[in-house]
């Protein structure tokens, strides 16, 4: 059984429009891969399709998590199986506190009838909030309601840290973060890195990759990966811009 998140020949439609096209990518456990690509190229579509969003129709292809297909699993089952998506645009849930929200997510992972040990839960929550420099007062605030852009992103990483997924897709978690927050969030991701987590980091900025050093960088264009390389690819992309990618894609075609 391969320890990886393996996406093969994936095709995703939104309505009648084909967005993800014969997409292939394997992220071995323990590695961090980055995806860069122009606006509208399908990065978030890929992320949401992996999570199982009902508007994103997988017309063909396969997604295996540690050798098991996740495509027949419901959204919540995929999450409990160990897949995590940090949203590009996290939703606000009025009246539901962060503490209760994460608690419900953790409770859902326990066997039927078992309940979370509250003191242990809060201890863990506070530790992880402290590490991410999130004020403890946030536990009693409604999820994402009235949060600044950066606070929302930090809260996504807090959720990831609390849920300890096997694979995580971080969709532009760096956008909206100031330099300090970027460092903190990167540390948060790096702390989970290593043997237990495989991550796909979607970003527009090479800067993030100075903090979360990727094992591989992929450039996505028009629904598929058109170039892969190491960290230096991100630097090259930053220098040459997406016109360069457009060129090599068109000459290749």
């Amino acid at each position: 059984m391969s320890q990886s998140l393996e996406i093969t020949n994936l095709n995703v439609n939104i309505g009648d429009k084909r967005i993800i096209k014969d997409f292939n990518l394997t992220i071995p456990k323990g590695e961090v891969h980055a995806i860069m690509g122009p606006n509208g190229t399908g990065k978030s579509t890929l992320a949401k399709a992996l999570a199982g969003h009902p508007d994103y129709e997988i017309t063909s292809g396969e997604v295996l998590m540690d050798g098991e297909s996740i495509l027949d699993l419901e959204v919540d089952e995929r999450s409990r199986a160990g897949l995590f998506l940090a949203f590009q645009y996290p939703m606000e849930i009025p009246g539901v506190t962060i503490a209760n929200f994460i608690r419900a997510a953790k409770n859902a992972r326990l066997p039927d009838g078992e309940d979370l040990n509250a003191p242990a839960y809060y201890k863990e929550l506070y530790e992880k909030m402290d590490a991410l420099k999130i004020d403890r007062k946030f536990t009693s605030r409604s999820v994402n309601e009235g949060f600044s852009g950066g606070e929302k992103k930090r809260c996504e990483i807090l959720q990831m840290a609390m849920l300890e997924p096997k694979y995580a897709v971080l969709d532009e978690t760096d956008s909206g973060l100031d330099i300090d927050a970027l460092k903190i969030v990167s540390e948060g991701v790096n702390a989970l890195r290593g043997g237990n987590l495989g991550a796909l980091v979607i970003t527009h900025y090479q800067r993030l990759l100075n903090y979360i050093i990727p094992d591989q960088v992929h450039v996505m264009y028009d629904g598929r990966i058109v170039k892969s390389g190491d960290k230096s690819l991100a630097e090259e992309l930053e220098r040459k811009g997406y016109d360069w990618i457009k060129e090599i894609t068109e000459t290749a075609a």
Partner: peptide
């Protein structure tokens, strides 16, 4: 969807939204 994506089953998610409301 956001709540489901955190592993919270749909009935629990709906309930949470109602408490929040």
């Amino acid at each position: 969807f956001y709540m489901l994506a955190r592993g919270i089953p749909k009935p629990v998610a709906q309930e949470l939204v109602v408490y929040g409301f």
